[in-house]
Structure formats: C-alpha cells, structure tokens
C-alpha cells in the first residue's frame, strides 16, 4: 500500500529525484502564481473592480484579519509567510477533487518541510521583533530549569504540526481509496466532501498555530514592558 506520493518517482539521478510530491507542488505553485499574476495584472483602485479581484481581496483581507486577531500587531509583516502556508495547504486539499491528483501535503516530507519552515520562522520573527538576547532569554524564563522543556516544546510542536497535517491528509486519501474498493458509489463522494472540509480545517489549523507560535515568540517581552510602564 502506498502511503505517500513520494513513492511515485518520475525521474531519478542520485541524489536528485523528481517524485509526485515535488511535481504536484510545482503544478500547484504554477497555477497559484499564474492565476495571481493574471488577476492582479489589471487591478483597479477605483470602486469598480472585477469579480476575481474581489475574490482575491476577500482572501487576502480575511487572512490579514485572522493574523491580527491572533494578536500580531503588524499583520502585513507576517502575511507573506502565514498567508502562503494557508493558501498552499488549502489549495492542495481543494485540488483533491481532481482525479489522479495526489495532494503534496499527504507526504510527510512536505509537512515536515512546512513544519521546519515554521520552526525556523518562529525564532526568525522573534529575533527580528525583540532582538537576539531578549529572544533567547525567553527560553530560560521564568527559571533556567525551563530551558530543556522549552527546547523539547519547540521540537515536539514542530513534529506535531508535521504529523497532524500529514495524518489528516494521508488518512483522507487513504479512506477514499479503501472506500472505493468496498463501496464504489456514493460513499467515496461523501468522504471526498468530508475530506475537502478536513483539508480546509487543517489548513486553518496549521496556519493559525504557526501564527500563534510567532505571536508568542514576538510578544514575550511585552507583558514586562507593560508592567514597567504602569507603576
């Protein structure tokens, strides 16, 4: 039984290989970038604008609002990273309606790559926001004993991010495959619809968790600053 699209390899030349995960990722990237480029080619700053422009504005503004609600004070700074996370995972799930398509997020390699990106992005944004020393000091607060626990927490949550998304996406594809062999009518459709829903929820969860981690990393010092400000 095939658990991951990594196993479908189109071309290989050690150490390089082109498997289905990478190929579908490229396809998704191509569609997203070309679609964006086509729509944003003729943007209107006036009151009359195209439906596609409205659609993209709704998505972008919605993501921006979600980031702001998590507690990040400058959402546009994180929009590129968090927005792309959400759009990539959501679009990858959405395309499961296309026959023959294998979601790249159903590969643990992809989810691990995304989780690694989050793991790197959290200290990156934290240091950018509050400085190197202040960020690393947050690992030993309130006491030095917390340092190993904080490090374990960093690693475990990255792992959890990767495995959660992979498990959900893989299981969705797996259930449909199993159901197709048992009851080829109706049920696969229902499960496919359910899979779309879970995919959207997973995209939301993944990006929101990343936003929460980044918010936690960038806001560590703020309560102290507030305490100092109010005697």
């Amino acid at each position: 039984m095939r658990l991951t699209p990594d196993e479908i390899i189109f071309w290989q030349h050690e150490p390089f290989k082109l498997n289905a995960t990478i190929a579908f990722t490229w396809a998704l990237m191509l569609v997203m970038v070309v679609g964006s480029k086509l729509i944003t080619r003729r943007l209107s700053a006036g009151l009359h604008r195209s439906r596609w422009q409205n659609f993209l504005e709704i998505i972008v503004v919605g993501i921006e609002k979600q980031i702001a609600e998590v507690g990040l004070s400058r959402p546009r700074q994180y929009l590129g990273f968090l927005g792309t996370l959400f759009l990539f995972v959501a679009f990858a799930s959405l395309c499961t309606v296309i026959p023959g398509y294998e979601p790249p997020t159903g590969s643990l390699s992809t989810t691990a790559a995304l989780a690694l990106c989050v793991m790197v992005a959290v200290p990156f944004f934290g240091i950018a926001e509050q400085g190197l020393a202040a960020y690393f000091r947050s690992y030993v607060e309130p006491t030095f004993i917390m340092l190993p626990f904080n490090i374990i927490s960093e690693i475990s949550r990255t792992l959890a991010l990767a495995v959660r998304l992979f498990g959900n996406m893989m299981s969705g594809a797996m259930i449909i495959a199993i159901l197709l062999t048992i009851t080829p009518f109706i049920f696969p459709i229902v499960m496919s619809a359910l899979g779309l829903l879970t995919g959207m929820v997973q995209a939301y969860i993944f990006s929101i968790l990343a936003a929460v981690y980044i918010a936690a990393a960038t806001r560590t010092r703020e309560p102290k600053a507030e305490r100092a400000a109010s005697p």
Binding site: D6, F16, N19, T21, P104, S107, A112, A113
Partner: peptide, 13 residues
C-alpha cells in the same frame, strides 16, 4: 516516510 531530499526541495519550493 520522510525523504530528506524531498523535504529540502519542498522547503525551497
């Protein structure tokens, strides 16, 4: 389940 080349490629992607 994890192919490290694919992980690196996906990070870059």
């Amino acid at each position: 389940l994890i192919d490290w080349f694919t992980v690196g490629a996906q990070v870059v992607n």
